[in-house]
């Protein structure tokens, strides 16, 4: 039994990728859950808005690269991020003004909001295609690896290699910072508390003199930041393809619902839960098993589900939660 090599294989193929992916999902789900908590609808345009913010960031990155601006070992995209966030914030604020506010005033049913968000999704999708096209784009620069496979092998003397890409580490670090900042804002500042109050009890928030339109604007700006950061990190980690951002909608929703719609802590927990399940279920465990039980010939890959079906994992998690605990693990808004 070779526990060390098994552990390294596990870290390399399951833990590190899932942690990075989980961080991306957590940021996405935070955005969904905030919008749900304040505006009370599931935003189907979320993925395409993420794609838009990422596209703007990529264009800015290219611009900076052509000017010779760089962040050394860090990706230039980090520097371009504020531009992407600002553009996305303007776009979603404009969308709110032009689309959602009308239904808010009307107190329309949530499903009408969802429907409107589908229209917005179309428009965002078209805008993204317009600015950057439909093809795959890579925009990561700076150092590729923090730990490279070969260096690790030489250093540890193990047969199994371990790679930690800088984008993966960056994803986790940025997510931690963003989450800390968000929780500080929500729990410590007057504006953040007002947001939570509005999410808790809209009418009472009005009676307390909280300006709903201000809360809504603030929510969109924060959501725009979360969406753009999530999208850029996802793009840095996996490469950017607009259609992937539509597809990531399902795991993001699953994460938000698992955690309990409206609950920020839940969104983060849900993001990691979905990501770890997805990676664990689609990873061929034969290699890890080979180290742990050297004599055993499993006669298969020990892969529960092909990677093509990774969305099925989100779906199953979603179904299980809806069946047994529709308010989610952290008791979000009622059913």
């Amino acid at each position: 039994m070779d526990i060390l090599n098994a552990l390294v294989a596990f870290l390399n193929f399951v833990f590190i990728p899932a942690a990075a992916y989980g961080a991306q999902l957590a940021l996405g789900a935070l955005g969904v859950t905030l919008i749900y908590g304040i505006l009370r609808f599931s935003n189907f345009a979320h993925g395409d808005t993420m794609a838009f913010g990422t596209a703007i960031t990529i264009l800015t990155t290219w611009g900076m690269q052509s000017l010779g601006i760089s962040l050394g070992p860090l990706p230039t995209a980090l520097l371009a991020l504020p531009v992407g966030i600002a553009a996305t914030a303007l776009l979603v604020l404009g969308t709110d003004r032009a689309v959602y506010r009308f239904y808010r005033v009307q107190k329309a049913a949530p499903i009408i909001f969802v429907m409107a968000s589908v229209g917005v999704m179309f428009v965002m999708n078209g805008l993204t295609r317009l600015v950057i096209g439909v093809d795959e784009q890579r925009f990561d620069d700076g150092a590729r690896f923090i730990i490279a496979v070969r260096d690790f092998r030489e250093w540890s003397g193990l047969a199994e290699g371990l790679a930690l890409r800088s984008t993966q580490a960056l994803t986790v670090v940025v997510t931690a910072i963003v989450c800390a900042a968000l929780f500080w804002f929500l729990n410590r500042t007057k504006a953040g508390k007002a947001m939570r109050a509005y999410s808790d009890n809209e009418d009472l928030a009005l009676l307390s003199g909280i300006d709903p339109e201000r809360v809504v604007r603030l929510t969109w700006i924060i959501a725009a930041a979360l969406m753009t950061i999530a999208g850029v990190l996802y793009g840095l980690d996996k490469s950017f393809r607009p259609f992937n951002y539509f597809q990531i909608l399902l795991p993001i929703f699953a994460a938000a619902i698992v955690g309990g719609l409206g609950s920020p802590v839940g969104a983060i927990a849900g993001g990691f839960l979905v990501a770890f399940s997805e990676v664990a279920v689609t990873y061929p465990w034969v290699k890890v098993a080979g180290y742990l039980f050297p004599g055993w010939e499993p006669g298969g890959l020990l892969q529960l589900l092909g990677t093509e079906y990774k969305f099925a994992v989100s779906f199953v998690i979603l179904i299980v939660v809806l069946l047994f605990r529709p308010t989610g693990l952290f008791r979000g808004k009622s059913v």
């Binding site: 609808f41 599931s42 189907f44 049913a109 949530p110 499903i111 969802v114 597809q247 909608l249 399902l250 929703f253 699953a254 619902i257 079906y309 969305f311 099925a312 989100s314 779906f315 979603l318 179904i319 809806l322 069946l323 529709p326 059913v335």
Partner: peptide, 21 residues
């Protein structure tokens, strides 16, 4: 069977999933 009877958005999200699957 699973998604009906809950919030209206849940059916939307669940059907999005079944469609992709």
């Amino acid at each position: 069977k699973v998604a009906l009877g809950l919030r209206s958005d849940y059916l939307a999200i669940a059907t999005l999933g079944i469609g992709e699957i």
